[in-house]
Amino acid sequence: MVEVGNLNNVQSANSYYKTQDTAAANEKNDELTKRTEEKNYDEKLKKSVDKLNKFIYDEGAYAEISTHNKFRYDIMIKIIDKKTKEVIMEVPPKKIIDMVAKMCEIAGVIFDKKA
């Protein structure tokens, strides 16, 4: 014979584990969705750069795309002269992003000291 108190404990434990399983499944789905979005973003970005290169090809230049080492999701686009390999234009300028990164680093040091 199972006592009512023990039955409630079993039901509570089952409910807890179902909640944990659901949370783990949701986390896996979120990660999969994030990867899919990043892949789609990368594909769209590549297509955009290809279009840009087709547009400026006759001007004797080409576009390169890169990300900053501190800000992984900040994109920099360089327009480069084909003959001289000189950077004609950079958007946003790397110097600006470097300055922002340094300011964030300094702000982080200040906040870390206060905490």
Rank of each mutant, 00 (worst) to 15 (best):
M1H: 05
V2H: 10
V4N: 11
V4R: 12
N6E: 09
N9I: 09
N9W: 00
Q11N: 07
S12C: 06
A13M: 07
N14E: 10
S15W: 00
S15E: 04
Y17F: 10
Y17C: 02
K18G: 01
K18V: 11
T19A: 04
Q20R: 08
A24C: 01
A24S: 09
A25K: 05
E27A: 08
N29P: 01
N29K: 13
D30R: 05
T33M: 10
K34R: 12
R35L: 14
R35G: 00
T36I: 04
K39V: 05
N40G: 03
N40Q: 15
Y41A: 04
Y41M: 14
E43W: 03
E43A: 15
E43C: 07
K44E: 12
K44F: 05
L45A: 10
V49R: 04
V49D: 09
D50P: 07
D50W: 13
K51E: 14
K51I: 07
K51G: 12
N53L: 03
K54L: 04
K54W: 00
K54C: 01
F55T: 12
F55Y: 09
I56K: 01
Y57R: 00
Y57T: 03
E59N: 09
E59P: 00
E59G: 03
G60A: 03
G60Q: 02
A61W: 01
Y62P: 01
Y62D: 14
A63D: 02
A63F: 04
S66H: 10
T67N: 08
N69P: 13
F71Q: 04
R72V: 08
R72A: 15
Y73T: 07
Y73M: 09
D74I: 14
D74S: 14
M76D: 09
I77R: 00
I77G: 03
I77K: 05
I79Q: 15
I79M: 11
I80L: 09
I80H: 14
D81H: 12
K82D: 11
K82V: 06
K82F: 01
K82A: 00
K83E: 06
T84K: 14
K85Q: 12
K85A: 08
E86D: 11
V87M: 10
V87C: 13
V87E: 13
I88C: 10
M89A: 12
M89R: 15
V91H: 04
V91N: 07
P93C: 06
K94S: 13
K95R: 09
I97E: 08
D98R: 10
D98I: 02
D98W: 05
D98T: 02
V100G: 10
A101H: 01
K102W: 09
K102I: 04
C104Y: 14
I106G: 00
G108H: 05
V109S: 08
V109R: 08
V109K: 13
F111T: 15
K113T: 10
K113C: 06
K114L: 15
A115I: 15
A115F: 11
